[in-house]
């Protein structure tokens, strides 16, 4: 039944949960002991973009033009001050049209 739950599967889920909770809390805790200078603060400020770039660069390189065009469209619209949802819809639309056209 879909409402059942096996012990093994739950153990795997709780292992995933424990690891994730540890990561969510430990960074903040450990920074108690490391002084936050302007350099470190600037590095952390820049981190979201670095995570995005590192995550999506392989996708863009393997997927080619449509993924790159979609992301570029969204970045440009976002920098122009459009809201994120509009940037999302426009970006994905560009990719869908390109893919339909076989690009």
């Amino acid at each position: 039944m879909i409402f059942d739950a096996s012990t093994g599967t739950l153990a795997a889920i709780f292992a995933m949960s424990a690891v994730t909770i540890f990561l969510r809390l430990s960074g903040f805790f450990l920074m108690r002991f490391i002084p936050m200078g302007p350099r470190l603060e600037n590095g952390f400020r820049s981190l979201p973009g670095a995570v995005a770039a590192a995550t999506f660069a392989p996708l863009v390189m393997s997927d080619g033009a449509s993924a790159a065009a979609a992301i570029l469209t969204a970045i440009v619209l976002s920098r122009m001050g459009r809201n994120d949802l509009i940037a999302l819809i426009a970006g994905v639309s560009v990719a869908v049209v390109m893919r339909q056209a076989g690009l």
């Binding site: 820049s46 979201p48 995550t55 993924a67 979609a70 976002s78 994120d84 994905v92 869908v96």
Partner: peptide, 23 residues
């Protein structure tokens, strides 16, 4: 998923969000 661009939803959205943090 690919034809409808579902695979690009998170990458595109996330890129739009972080673009504004550029300084």
């Amino acid at each position: 998923a690919r034809a409808f661009g579902i695979d690009l939803v998170m990458p595109v959205f996330f890129s739009a969000m972080v673009a504004r943090l550029w300084q």
